[in-house]
Write a protein that binds this DNA or RNA. Structure first.
Lengths: 126, 126
DNA sequence: CTGTATCCTTTAGGATACTG
DNA sequence: CAGTATCCTAAAGGATACAG
């Protein structure tokens, strides 16, 4: 979803799904949470080289509102917040696997560049 | 792909795939070509209510450059141009099926609105 | 550590007019 | 019919500073 309440009626399921994953870093956030189960804000920031605090926070809020990410706040000092996938988020990740496979095939076929990601699970993400 | 030559290195397959389907109408174009096999420019325009000529042409050029759409120009007058899916485009469509299913489930679960599409194949697109 | 607030640049998308 | 060209608006994203 965008930040606005609800953009409008969807035309098909693809629309409704792309609306949720559209965002420069959302796919990576999804994958990072899938790979590690639980991540803190600062861990996600380190895992996404180049992301700004604003965008990371904004994306996480939207994904939370879309029901794919769970945000857990611990009443400690210093503050501690953990992010994880909801059941729906995990299902979304599963649904993205074939698309990821197609994308990797595309990268291979067209000889596109791929940035090395620290600690990325090479088996399925590359 | 964006209109710029190449945005930059991809981080994972999802990135590389989303880059190709990101665009307000690309998913629908994909589906329309899948459903009909071959479509002319004006047919696509009618199938995508609200699309501007500029965006449709631009999207089709990008999809052609990305190797998922084939553009066939007939040397006739009046002009005739046909669009269809390449093998890669058809594979992309297949890879999008689980995502579409997830999207429809999301629409159902959250009670989101869906716009009725003329002549859309209800079996898998709704 | 986990964010917000503000300001700014870039890009996507749209309206309209025109052309081979 | 199948587009281009031009101009414009809106939305996404980024830099930086500050706060609980």
């Amino acid at each position: 979803m965008a930040k606005a309440p609800r953009t409008g009626p969807y035309i098909c399921g693809i629309d409704a799904a792309l609306d949720v994953v559209s965002g420069k870093w959302k796919g990576l956030v999804l994958w990072e949470l899938h790979a590690h189960g639980v991540r803190r804000f600062s861990e996600l920031r380190r895992a996404l080289p180049g992301v700004s605090e604003k965008m990371l926070a904004q994306h996480l809020r939207e994904m939370e509102a879309d029901g794919i990410v769970l945000r857990t706040v611990y009443a400690e000092v210093p503050p501690k917040v953990e992010y994880s996938l909801t059941e729906s988020g995990a299902a979304l990740n599963e649904a993205l696997l074939p698309l990821g496979a197609w994308g990797r095939e595309r990268v291979r076929r067209e000889g596109l560049e791929v940035a090395p990601v620290p600690e990325a699970p090479a088996s399925a993400a590359g």
